[in-house]
Design a protein around this nucleic acid. Structure first.
Length: 506
RNA sequence: GGCCCGUUCGUCUAAGGGCUAGGACACCACCCUUUCACGGUGGUGAUACGGGUUCGAAUCCCGUACGGGCUACCA
């Protein structure tokens, strides 16, 4: 039977698509693709008050950039739609009422104030946060405690009830997590979760079960933060559709920041991005850069995320997406949380830049240079430059620091490195060098190097003494790739111009 | 507080009863390089603690500690 794997997203204002989210998508995607199944993305806009315009598109943009496009979604279509939760409202109500009819759920009329009072009144040292559970449900206002007449009266008055699951007392619910093995819960310690809210929208708990059934989901993998509510979902499966149809579950470990949990809110505070792509907080209009803007390649991004909590058992660390699909196995995903290490992330990107062909880096590098104000970039020159400097760039944005001097003549020179040993003999050498370069018909690095050394020999100067000044003339400092390669790319006119300009300053 | 999950170098991890606990990032040293990187070689560095089970435990069991998650008409 073909596998159908889904991942769910809430377009909420709490933040952009963060590392953990992308990794969850990635593992779901890899599993689906490995088994020739369908990868489905669901949008959870159950809480309309939190819904943010644009967040949905943002999520799909991120997935597109990562190369993790779904087979089915609100954007991609599919035959199990609608794929947006708010368009499935009536479906959820039907199942919630079915549960009430079967005695597995009940209407609750408690107001937010009632609930607050309950949490206050029942709070003790042993129980610091009381829950709406089997011990107190009979002390609240719901269809279990009120008579039919009283309920009808409340409804007539316009009170909109919620539907809560009636958790059984003293039952053990267990399931086999594909990563953790057997996990079990005592139902008396789980509260009566709201299934259908007063506004008629379902909570995650109802929606996830109903949708997974109707959409014939075979596997559902999510973050570890969902583990405590698993018993609710399992019970709903049991009551509504039977455990035989329940998808296989796996709960991924969390990705941690330097001091504990990785918070979406803290965005850029860590000194490294936490989002896949730039996210603008709609409330504060605060803009947070993502891995894309920081100069990561999408191939490197999914590679490093895949290895944060999974490995194939060999010592291989660099994987293409195709290799990941082939080698991924859910059983090899770790159960422990992983702390994110930005240094290692940059190493992955560096490896990918080195591995990438000049052509595939071209547009990304061009954008970086344009953003830094370098205009009129020649294609041929850009390609040569990328080939020359890509081994020394960890991030796409490093290309500016490593290559700006190909496009901008130096304004300042590291004169301290030249001046102390600068003399007439060297001046003469460079005068002769420019004359030689002017007449040079074959502007190639190797030719330039030979001529350079010959002139040095004739002038009885060690090449080493004039090599560093030459470099500083061309780029301004003690950095960059091999000097003669730089000169070749710069071209005859520019090289000579830079030498003459610098000589006049030294 | 209660419940659940977890714990191997600083970090990501390998080793699922059996050689000196392996690799990668970071760090340090040396080599290469008439700049800086890349690269190469080597080095420092870990089984949280205490009990069991076993000829033998990082590995299985129990307890403790620590970390994380959940405890909303959020997801």
């Amino acid at each position: 039977m073909s596998k159908r794997v889904r991942v769910r997203f809430a377009p909420s204002p709490t933040g952009g698509l963060h590392l953990g989210g992308v990794r969850t998508v990635l593992y779901n995607y890899l599993f689906a693709k490995k088994h020739g199944g369908d990868f489905i993305v669901r949008i959870e806009d159950t809480d309309q008050s939190r819904y943010v315009q644009g967040a949905e598109e943002y999520i799909f943009d991120c997935l597109r950039w990562c190369g993790l496009d779904p087979d089915e979604s609100v954007q991609h279509g599919g035959k199990y739609g609608p794929y947006r939760q708010s368009e499935r409202k009536e479906i959820y109500r039907k199942y919630a009422e079915q549960l009430v009819k079967d005695g597995h759920a009940y209407y609750a009329f408690d107001t937010p104030e009632d609930l607050e009072k309950m949490r206050h009144d029942f709070k003790t040292e042993q129980n610091t946060s009381p829950q709406y559970d089997h011990t107190i449900r009979m002390k609240m206002r719901n269809s279990l405690t009120l008579s039919a007449d009283e309920s009808r009266k409340l409804l007539a008055e316009g009170t909109r009830p919620v539907i809560r699951i009636k958790m059984p007392d003293q039952e053990t619910v267990s399931f086999k997590d594909m990563i953790r093995g057997d996990v079990s819960f005592d139902t008396s310690l789980v509260d009566d979760k709201v299934l259908l809210k007063a506004d008629g929208m379902p909570t995650y708990h109802l929606a996830v079960v109903v949708d997974d059934y109707l959409m014939q989901i075979s596997h559902a993998f999510r973050g570890e933060e969902w583990l405590p509510s698993a018993p609710v979902h399992i019970l709903l499966w049991k009551y509504l559709f039977g455990l035989d149809h329940m998808p296989r579950w796996a709960h991924f470990p969390l990705i941690l920041g330097p001091n504990g949990k990785l918070s979406k809110r803290d965005g850029a505070k860590y000194g490294f991005p936490v989002f896949a792509m730039r996210w603008t907080d709609p409330k504060t209009v605060e803009l947070t850069e993502g891995f894309k803007e920081k100069g990561f390649l999408p191939e490197a991004f999914i590679n490093l995320l895949a290895l944060l909590g999974w490995n194939d058992g060999t010592e291989q660390e660099i994987f293409t997406k195709e290799e990941l699909v082939e080698k991924f196995s859910i059983e090899r995903v770790h159960s422990g949380g992983a702390k994110f290490d930005y240094e290692k992330a940059k190493w992955f990107n560096h490896e990918w830049i080195k591995k990438s062909g000049v052509g595939s880096l071209e547009s990304g590098v061009r954008n970086v240079l344009i953003e830094k104000g370098i205009a009129g970039i020649d294609d041929v020159v850009l390609n040569k430059v990328i080939g020359l400097v890509k081994d020394r760039c960890s991030l796409l944005t490093d290309f500016y620091d490593q290559a700006y001097f190909f496009f901008k003549s130096p304004e300042n020179w590291d004169v301290d490195a030249v001046k102390p040993k600068w003399n007439e003999a060297k001046k003469l050498f460079f005068a002769e060098l420019t004359r030689n370069f002017e007449l040079n018909p074959d502007w190639k690095a190797t030719v330039l190097e030979n001529n350079f050394k010959e002139i040095a020999a004739v002038n009885e100067i060690k090449p080493g003494e004039v090599l560093l000044p030459f470099r500083i003339m061309l780029v301004g400092g003690k950095f960059g790739p091999a000097v003669f390669d730089i000169a070749e790319v710069l071209g005859k006119e520019e090289t000579i111009a830079r030498i003459e300009k610098a000589v006049s300053v030294f």
